[in-house]
Nucleic acid binder design. Structure first.
Lengths: 160, 160
DNA sequence: TGCAGGTCTATGCAAACGCATAAACCGTGG
DNA sequence: CCACGGTTTATGCGTTTGCATAGACCTGCA
């Protein structure tokens, strides 16, 4: 029992360390243009889910408080990357989607960033390990692991 | 090799999602007393490395800019959790260590938090998966940041 | 020795964040 | 139909963050 606890804690610490190290590495790269990584994260999430999202949905994916997210969306709207409109079905709510400029920006940054991610992970891990990591982390994220073949559709694809 | 790129990006997104979800879950728990998770992270890191650390060392483990870390240490010193003294060998530098109160605080919080971590991870993953996750993430964490000739002009410091 | 370039930490300042809470709205039960 | 508790997003306010840079110190070389 104590053994299992120790293994779990070690795994979590490893995940945190990997996260911190890679985040620092990615942050240091010159691909973000005039966006912060957090802002990019929002644009990426909006691009991944095809339909307009509510702020509540977004906040489940982004590590940011709801008020911070609300204001960040303000800025992104003001800069022309995101459109914000009322939800007809629920007038408390708000729908967010990318503008053309926002989608463009996300793609520009995403293409370079994705290459960088691939360089970092694929040189450190074998193909098997990459798949294991994905499977395990999707379980932790509580989302169904993506079936092997459909990966290319959903994600940013780097064409060479 | 677009395929391998896609798998690597999927793995990274999975890791980010797992990180975000678990961080939110842990943040919501009532174990942090009067510390933020980031502050706890600093106390934890200081407790893990037995000897006094320099701010530079800390900043490699904590996802925070150097100035932010410097000021956070200010606060922790002022609150009596951390001791800060000059490094004799290098008078630019600073050594940080936990005070008795700091060690105490870390242990109190750490004990409860560790249980929480174990609960979250061990119910989602098998023992094998936990070990795989740890192994893979440690590889990612330990890897020297710059391994590529095309980005050698980075300021990233390679460990010696 | 003295100076040039690099490293380490701290500080000024504007921007961004989190917490508490307000404001608008939904849905249900009386 | 309205009152009441729950949900969703926005705002006030004090705190924390990041960027740029200063200041102190180290190292190597002329």
């Amino acid at each position: 029992m104590a053994r299992r606890t120790a293994v779990a804690n070690d795994a979590w610490e490893a995940l945190l360390s990997a996260h911190a190290r890679l985040m620092k590495r990615f942050a240091a790269e010159d691909v973000w243009q005039d966006l912060s990584m957090r802002e990019y994260d929002v644009l990426y999430t909006l691009s991944k889910y095809r339909q307009p999202l509510r702020i509540g949905e977004l906040s489940r994916h982004v590590l940011l408080s709801q008020p911070a997210l609300s204001r960040m969306v303000d800025r992104l709207v003001e800069r022309g990357f995101v459109a914000r409109y009322a939800d007809r079905a629920d007038r408390r709510g708000v729908r967010l989607s990318l503008t053309a400029a926002g989608r463009d920006k996300q793609r520009q940054i995403g293409r370079r960033h994705a290459r960088s991610v691939a360089r970092a992970l694929a040189t450190a891990l074998s193909a098997d390990e990459l798949r294991q990591l994905a499977t395990i982390c999707w379980k932790l994220a509580d989302r169904p692991a993506v079936a092997d073949a459909s990966i290319t559709d959903e994600k940013e694809t780097v064409r060479t």
